[in-house]
Design a binder for these strands. Sequence first.
DNA 1: AAAACCAATGCAATGGAAGTGCATTTATTA
DNA 2: TAATAAATGCACTTCCATTGCATTGGTTTT
Lengths: 137, 137
Amino acid sequence: MKTIEQLLESKNIRVTAMRLLIYKFLAKKEVAVTLSDIENAFEKADRTTLYRTVKTFEEKAIVHQIDDGTGITKYALCEKGCNCEIETDLHLHFHCNNCNETICLTDHKIPQIKVPDGFVSENVNLVVKGICDKCSV
Amino acid sequence: MKTIEQLLESKNIRVTAMRLLIYKFLAKKEVAVTLSDIENAFEKADRTTLYRTVKTFEEKAIVHQIDDGTGITKYALCEKGCNCEIETDLHLHFHCNNCNETICLTDHKIPQIKVPDGFVSENVNLVVKGICDKCSV
DNA sequence: AAAACCAATGCAATGGAAGTGCATTTATTA
DNA sequence: TAATAAATGCACTTCCATTGCATTGGTTTT
Ligand SMILES: [Mn+2]
Ligand SMILES: [Mn+2]
Ligand SMILES: [Zn+2]
Ligand SMILES: [Zn+2]
């Protein structure tokens, strides 16, 4: 069980107060968040800092970006051992048309998609839209 | 074999010079296009007109919108008989990481995607990224 | 410990794309 | 032809993403 500090250091990211706070914020969220969400949670911090922190996390595979079709990019923590770059690791995402939230379905891996001859698949983005469990009761 | 005029009229869209031109432009393109692409092709026309024309086409199911993850929405003509609203009709899209173009794989339908209990799937967006046939030779 | 260094943060500005209000032109209908 | 409605054009706005540059703060070197 790694501490957050150890995790950051293992990826050559300097530990700062801001980074720890943002990491914890993402960790306690069970849904993907936008930059605005983070902004609202840390009103004293500058947008740019938050932006760059998330980008750093993204580069170092601490978070992954989610394009759920709303036009606003969202972010969520990577699972332990998740290597976002590897295709086989890709899970699907669910976007609720009711509460407008997006979540990772981390144990729903994307099935193998056939593409025509001559095409090479490197990566797949799969977003299911509908009604989430909280909204469908 | 319908003419473009007949197609537009059958969907209660008035035939105008601009609309015919944009339709033909989309028809001769084999890839999905952005609004900027259309702008560049019709520099004498106003952005707004092009924008609203595409939106009209979209509402009337003449084109469908494609979110390929680049952050810029693209559009492509619907196939004959294609009903974009119906889930079973949804085909997948391929985005080439090399030439940056996106194409409809109209005869590659999206497989049934399982979602966890309590979730209701209404719609699926599936984009495969990689190298297209033209770039992979 | 002080100086030098580099990364992190903050501030301001930019750019791109999407969208809207309103005036004007053009086509349709009465 | 006059009245009406839709299409187009222009200007402006909003929202999100991104960058340049100055400043702060922590680390390393002397
Ligand atoms: Mn995810
Ligand atoms: Mn398509
Ligand atoms: Zn919901
Ligand atoms: Zn290509």
